[in-house]
Write a protein that binds this DNA or RNA. Structure first.
Lengths: 195, 195
DNA sequence: AAACTGACAGATATTGACATCTGTCATCGC
DNA sequence: GCGATGACAGATGTCAATATCTGTCAGTTT
């Protein structure tokens, strides 16, 4: 008897297949073939193709989160942590878009039409940011009324650097300069009351 | 003899046709038909289809600019003007996306693959913003080193509210709240040195 | 001569017959 | 009984034949 078919194994096969063929070309039959089972079996673990695709993208988003968590509670001033965190977010996505374009396209497709999953992800990111900003307030670096609202504002204001809709611009030369400009302005805004 | 065929008349017919059929469906032959001429004549005024499409979108962008210029030099504090200007920019695009989706799609297509035209447009917008911010500095409302860099930062940070790539999000309920959050943060950043 | 036409070549889009895919479910084997 | 199967209907995708489009240009009209 072969190893039992689990949702986890399906997810792994789906991710491999998506990476190989891209979101437009992978079929449920392809995923089943990679597992050596009939496609009907895949439907035992996921209600439909969209759910499978979303689950793969969610897994990927969790991996992005995992890279960010350590920075949320790292050493150093809140300013430094905020800066590293934002850079890590941008860099991770940029790298992924370049190195793993097919999986990135899957994530982009998710972002475009499965808004809920993305909202949850953005909430998670905002939570981490709020934590850093909150620390900054305690340490006297920042002064904001509501750290969570400020976190959302920072995320929105840096959309261009992490939202997949802007991936095409990520290879342009002026991008880093643009980031510096936005960073400078946001930092002033957060620290505003302190000067 | 009928009225002479001018680039202007071609542009008008092209805009009407694009509005009717959308950027994906309008052909040069359609535009010529609307004018009652052969499609060869259209090529007397525009070197190719892309140039015609770009010219239509540029005309539209100039109309957006025309709505913004008055606000650049209006009465009131720089803060008020900045706020109205950003609102006008967002509102105009949002309205256009809703009321004239086919023309908006044309503009979006332009933004996606004719980057130069858009860069010029963004420079124009940044110029207006720099003017307002500059005034704010003179009047003691703002304190920034380089108004033009600050202007670019403000534009980038508000991408989500005026970039057509985000048009799908413009009908979501939380959008205005998000704008308020970003606005509050940017304003603090600009006014930072003043408190 | 300047403005326009329409036939043309090559590129792109549309069509419709056919193949594959998605999602369901009665049935099978362990 | 439980997980897996494979046949199935309807939806979606593919492909090659066909039609339309883009861009050019020699020729016509005014």
């Amino acid at each position: 008897m072969t190893e039992a078919l689990t949702a986890e194994r399906v997810l792994e096969a789906a991710e491999d297949t998506l990476r190989r063929f891209g979101p437009g070309k992978t079929t449920v039959v392809d995923v089943a073939r990679a597992l050596g089972v009939s496609h009907g079996s895949v439907y035992r673990h996921f209600p439909n193709k969209a759910a499978l695709r979303d689950a793969v993208a969610e897994r990927w988003l969790e991996r992005v989160n995992a890279r960010l968590w350590p920075l949320t509670t790292a050493d150093g001033s809140a300013t430094e942590r905020l800066r590293s965190w934002l850079e890590q977010l941008s860099t991770t996505k940029r790298l992924m878009a370049r190195e793993d374009p097919e999986l990135f396209a899957t994530y982009h497709a998710l972002a475009t039409d499965s808004r809920d999953v993305i909202r949850v992800h953005l909430d998670t990111l905002a939570g981490m940011l709020a934590r850093i900003i909150s620390d900054g307030v305690s340490q006297g670096e920042f002064e904001v009324e509501d750290p969570h609202r400020a976190a959302r504002a920072v995320l929105t204001a840096t959309t261009r650097f992490h939202n997949p809709a802007h991936a095409a611009e990520w290879e342009e030369p002026g991008l880093d300069a643009d980031f510096e400009e936005v960073w400078a302005l946001l930092l002033l805004g957060l620290a505003s009351g302190r000067r």
